[in-house]
Design a protein around this nucleic acid. Structure first.
Lengths: 191, 191
DNA sequence: CCTACCGATCGGTAGG
DNA sequence: CCTACCGATCGGTAGG
């Protein structure tokens, strides 16, 4: 019940509301009500409504990028790295679903500085991902294909996961196994 | 310059603004300004701000479902139907990018009745898509896999396309060829 | 298509 | 953590 745990509680509750209604349609009073406070009291914990969005989005974006960096610096071969990054992406999505759900739409509401930082992180992630696919091809782990399109396709699936995975009681390991299989191996029968 | 073409112009301009800023953060005055009108004049063409969103989202959703219905009723085999539905999805996304871009996030701002209609259309599309994958497996066109996960994965890629395809001058045929190849055939080298 | 205007709600501050 | 309150902006109406 100290200051910083109240702040953490506020961030978590705001994330739920932002996800349900969108950032712009969620009012400071909505968040206050979820905290069982009056709205001016929120400002003991935050600087502004926008700061909440900033913390939620930048923290989770840094989390993705840092995880990827660890994998890329590991001694695994490129294909193993690719599978590991997919697994990490699934894990972060499951652990931080509400913040992850804000990524596709609410980043446009960040202020200029934060939006640029966010885009920088996203671009780094995408660029590294494409580079890894390229390494897989060059070292013969994967077939020749259009790296940009394949990268976009895999990342779309991973980034959309938040909207879907909770609907069934899905074993994360099963999910990961199936996704790696589908995304890398395809759906065709074995020849 | 008659009434209905002004309305069409309004809808197109609203779609651009909703895409850029989100529905909730776009004001009636923003739309009026894009139309070079004062805001009360908009109401000669529309009933409410929400009606704009309704028309944009439900029209494009009905478009997807109707296109799928035609394919499913055709004499093509299941795998050919699947490829054709993917191609149609890409085509609609390219033709109606702005309205398509609203689907992932702004449908929550529809009123109760429209939201239910929208969800009904989306569920129909998803259910038919899963059914088609199932047919492909049962008739030996595709390997055994988790239909729910594969369906989610393919639809994620197709639904995310709007955010991406315009960035390069991409030949729609090349895009379709690559996506069908990646999504169905996978990325592994030929054995 | 416009001017004039309304009640509701917004994010946030002052002061305790 | 609260009460009291502010200026700005919201979607929309009246009346022409």
């Amino acid at each position: 019940m100290n200051q910083s745990s109240r702040r953490a509680e506020l961030l978590a509750k705001a994330a739920i509301l932002f996800r349900q209604k969108g950032y712009a349609a969620t009012s400071i009073r909505d968040i206050a009500s979820a905290m069982e406070m009056k709205s001016p009291s929120l400002y003991n914990h935050i600087k502004s409504k926008e700061e909440i969005l900033q913390v939620l989005l930048l923290d989770v974006a840094r989390h993705y990028v840092a995880g990827m960096k660890d994998v890329l610096e590991s001694p695994l071969n490129p294909l193993q790295q690719l599978e590991r990054i997919i697994a990490d992406h699934i894990r972060i999505t499951i652990e931080q679903t509400n913040a992850v759900a804000l990524i596709p739409s609410d980043w446009i509401h960040l202020d200029e500085t934060s939006r640029q930082e966010f885009m920088r992180l996203r671009d780094t992630y995408d660029r590294n991902f494409r580079g890894l696919l390229k390494d897989c091809i060059e070292q013969g782990y994967l077939a020749e294909f259009d790296v940009d399109i394949a990268s976009f396709s895999i990342l779309s699936t991973l980034r959309w996961l938040f909207s879907w995975y909770k609907k069934r009681e899905l074993n994360p390991i099963h999910l990961e196994t199936e996704l790696v299989r589908n995304l890398i191996g395809g759906l065709k029968p074995a020849t």
